[in-house]
């Protein structure tokens, strides 16, 4: 069961000789799918959007597009890409395939941080909330990394993480209930893109520089996955890289939880699926992981918007359900 995260050459690594990929189809096909999903995401919604009106760059349709549909598309893509990259980095740092913000307590810690910000500093702006959420998430992740550093069994770490998360969640609930805040908290318990409009979601753009920074350090994160000794012998400042990685993860988690809420399992399944296909070298796989996360979340969001149209199913439900099923599949598949 204990499969090391060290880059095992996947079936697609190295020189690929499958003809369809040599001809560039391997890039064109996902690209086209991504574009189609983006377009679909723009076209679906409760309000009608007259395409003919768009050519005038004004009027109601234009307003719908720029104030609601485009921000939503940006939020979905950024959240999906950010969470997937987060999961990949965490999996390298903790050297475990089954970790991501939901299974390391990061999501719950960010919620707790927002809650503390809202109750102690009710007048503070989004910046303060963001900072506190990030600080809580970072602290929780650091504690979890230290606690689980010596755990050997692969499946024990996510179990411990889920428990850790549920304790943090219970703490948040206790705190919120005693301050009569439970109803307000439920707003961001569950990921939901329906409230994303121009002016309320801009924090999520923070994901973009974070993903870019992750890409810059991708080679080092890959080395971290080989363990402290190997990384140190290759001239890497192990501790500094771990802290940097956790800071990047916390920034993404805090930004996404503040704007759209918690979405579990996306960060877990996407990197795993990509690494089954292309191996673990983040310098090669990170773009695919980011694109995969964005596409998975686009699909989940579209599902949520279409199932009970004109109502919406929060993406926390569709994403959690689809991601959870894929996670179960990964666990049981790994068991065989």
């Amino acid at each position: 069961m204990d499969r090391p995260v060290a880059p095992a050459a996947g079936p697609g690594a190295g020189n690929d000789c499958r003809p369809w990929r040599r001809r560039g189809m391997g890039r064109a096909l996902p690209g086209a799918l991504f574009a189609a999903l983006c377009l679909a995401s723009l076209m679906v919604g409760a309000g009608r959007m007259e395409l003919a009106q768009l050519t005038t760059f004004s009027g109601e349709a234009w307003l719908t597009l720029t104030a609601s549909r485009l921000p939503r598309l940006a939020a979905v893509v950024l959240t999906g890409a950010g969470l997937a990259v987060c999961g990949a980095v965490l999996q390298q740092i903790l050297r475990n395939r089954f970790v991501e913000p939901a299974t390391t307590g990061g999501l719950e810690a960010a919620k707790l941080g927002i809650l503390v910000a809202l109750t102690l500093l009710p007048g503070a702006g989004q910046g303060v909330r963001m900072a506190l959420a990030m600080a809580f998430c970072l602290a929780a992740s650091l504690i979890f990394a230290v606690i689980t550093a010596r755990l050997r069994a692969t499946v024990l770490v996510p179990v411990a993480g889920l428990m850790y998360g549920s304790v943090l969640g219970a703490l948040a609930e206790f705190y919120a209930y005693s301050r009569n805040f439970l109803q307000g908290m439920q707003g961001w318990m569950l990921g939901d893109f329906s409230k994303v409009v121009q002016g309320s979601y801009e924090v999520v753009w923070l994901v973009l520089p974070v993903v870019a920074a992750t890409y810059v350090f991708a080679r080092r994160f890959t080395l971290i996955g080989m363990g402290a000794e190997v990384a140190a012998s290759l001239g890497l400042g192990y501790r500094a890289m771990v802290v940097l990685g956790l800071v990047l993860v916390s920034a993404t988690v805090a930004a996404t939880v503040i704007t759209v809420g918690a979405i579990p399992f996306v960060g877990l399944v996407v990197p795993n699926l990509v690494s089954l296909w292309r191996g673990d070298d983040l310098t090669r796989t990170l773009p695919m992981i980011a694109a995969g996360g964005a596409m998975l979340l686009l699909i989940c969001d579209l599902l949520g918007r279409l199932i009970i149209w004109p109502y919406e199913v929060p993406v926390g439900l569709t994403g959690g359900g689809v991601g959870g099923l894929m996670f179960l599949f990964l666990i049981l598949w790994g068991r065989r």
Binding site: V159, G320, G324, I331
Partner: peptide
Amino acid sequence: MLMLVGLVLTMV
């Protein structure tokens, strides 16, 4: 492993 399956199943 069983516990992880159970927890994720509960969430799903």
